[in-house]
């Protein structure tokens, strides 16, 4: 049964292919399962100096799949989770992530990247709290979109947005990844 469940996403993907041909372009829509077990991914210390939009504490980056050596950009499907690991329990950690969605997503900011805020549930599972090009701490406007139109996130409700830093002009040369150790091919 466990094996069958592991194959479930594949089965579904294939089954949907019964009526569809090739997808029009490479697009990756991350789901909750894609963040499961992120603590086992390669982990990098990325600093602890104060940063806009992030709470205070040691910050770490976890990379699901390292980009190929020498690559200038992460491939579609890549995920980087950033944590601020302060507090007595993991439930208190601040968790952010960026997933390479592709398809021209977030064209006005960190192109092709989708941002996430996550929290660790009491059962230890990372849960998506909000997502999009402008995720909020929660679904601030209550419209079930996870906060896309809610006006940003921030530990103090400051309304910071991911694109404010990750989408700055020039960051496209870094594939919008600001921490040097997390950049494509830097590991």
């Amino acid at each position: 049964m466990r094996r069958l469940l592991c194959l479930a996403p594949l089965l579904l993907a294939v089954a949907s292919g019964c009526t569809e041909t090739e997808p029009p372009e490479a697009v990756f829509i991350a789901l909750q399962r894609d963040f499961a077990g992120f603590e086992s991914w390669p982990r990098y210390f990325v600093g602890n100096s104060p940063l806009p939009g992030h709470s205070v504490g040691d910050r770490f980056g976890y990379i699901k799949q390292l980009a190929p050596k020498g690559a200038a950009a992460y491939p579609v499907g890549s995920i980087i989770v950033k944590t601020v690991e302060s507090g007595a329990t993991k439930q208190e950690w601040a968790l952010f992530a960026m997933a390479k969605r592709g398809g021209g997503f977030n064209a006005a900011g960190a192109k092709d990247w989708e941002f996430f805020t996550l929290r660790v549930s009491t059962s230890g599972v990372p849960v998506i709290v909000s997502r999009g090009s402008n995720p909020a701490d929660g679904d601030a406007d209550g419209d079930a979109d996870g906060g896309t139109t809610g006006g940003g996130y921030g530990s103090t409700g400051s309304g910071s947005t991911c694109n404010r830093c990750h989408g700055l002009p020039g960051t496209e040369q870094l594939d919008y990844v600001l921490s040097a150790v997390l950049r494509p091919g830097a590991q």
Partner: peptide, 27 residues
């Protein structure tokens, strides 16, 4: 429509949509 077609849903995405939609009705 085209991006949804190849997507394999997980239970969280499928189930939470219902709960989110319920909350929106009050709004």
């Amino acid at each position: 429509r085209s991006q949804f077609a190849p997507l394999a849903l997980d239970p969280a995405a499928a189930f939470r949509g219902v709960i989110g939609s319920m909350n929106e009705q009050l709004e």
